[in-house]
Amino acid sequence: MRKISYMMSVSLDGFLEGPDRDISWHLVDDELHQHMNDTLRPMGAFVDGRVTHELMAGYWPTADADPDASAVTAEFAAIWRDKPKIVYSRTLPAGPAEWNTTIVSEVVPEELSALKEQPGGDLCLGGADLAAAFLRLDLVDEIKVYVHPVLIGRGKRMFPETDTHTALRLVENHAFGNGVVLLRYERLAP
């Protein structure tokens, strides 16, 4: 069965973006970018909220057309374009959209369970608000946190405040040369 994997880069103080959606503090070098490409290439689909999808769609469809694009950037542009994308939005019209995208208006656990039963790679979950909804519904199987060695002080947190207790087990950690640390957790059965 496919897993739903929530992946996010965060500052050491737990923010995924600073004020005004600032992510200029992300330390993405070729080593980390290649790791991301290798991790995301076998995924079955990207599952994102509208804001995350629009940010990605604003850059990645043509990023490899830039003559100054690095090899890892061009590689990810192709991965992103070709990968099926499921976007949850209450403001966009439901149905097929550009870039191999399907817009869905509501998170329906039974539909996600059926999607997990289908063949193919795991599902990569992105976007803090959508991930919060998935976590509330106990739909996240694994969490991959890429901790960047920076304190940004304020912004949007990776996890919202909640009264829910979710037990996790560390199954992988890796330090990259730029100081970013991957912590991969699996959700323990309740």
Rank of each mutant, 00 (worst) to 15 (best):
I4C: 05
S5G: 03
S5D: 06
S5N: 05
L12Y: 07
F15E: 00
E17R: 14
E17Q: 14
E17C: 15
P19H: 03
D20T: 01
D22Y: 09
I23M: 14
S24R: 11
S24C: 10
W25F: 13
W25A: 08
D29Q: 11
D29S: 15
E31T: 13
L32W: 03
L32A: 01
Q34A: 14
H35S: 09
M36R: 05
M36T: 15
R41G: 05
R41F: 08
P42R: 01
P42Y: 00
F46D: 00
F46L: 15
G49R: 10
E54K: 11
P61F: 14
P61K: 11
A63G: 04
D64S: 10
D64I: 08
A69H: 07
E75S: 13
I79V: 15
I79R: 00
D82S: 13
D82E: 08
D82R: 08
K85D: 09
I86D: 01
R90G: 13
T91G: 05
L92P: 01
P93D: 06
P93Q: 00
P93V: 00
P93T: 06
P96K: 06
P96G: 04
A97F: 09
W99S: 14
I103W: 02
S105C: 02
S105A: 13
E106A: 14
E106I: 12
E106Y: 08
V108F: 05
P109E: 04
P109C: 03
E110D: 13
E111Q: 14
E111W: 07
A114I: 03
E117V: 00
L123P: 05
C124D: 07
G126L: 10
D129K: 14
L130F: 02
L130Q: 04
A132F: 05
F134V: 08
L137I: 08
L139N: 01
D141F: 01
E142S: 15
K144M: 12
Y146P: 02
H148C: 10
H148D: 11
P149K: 03
L151H: 06
L151T: 05
G153E: 02
R154H: 09
F159A: 09
F159C: 10
T162H: 05
T162E: 07
D163E: 15
H165E: 15
T166E: 10
A167N: 07
L168N: 04
L170A: 04
L170S: 00
A175W: 04
A175K: 06
F176M: 02
G179F: 10
V180H: 01
L182A: 07
Y185I: 12
R187K: 15
A189G: 02
P190I: 01
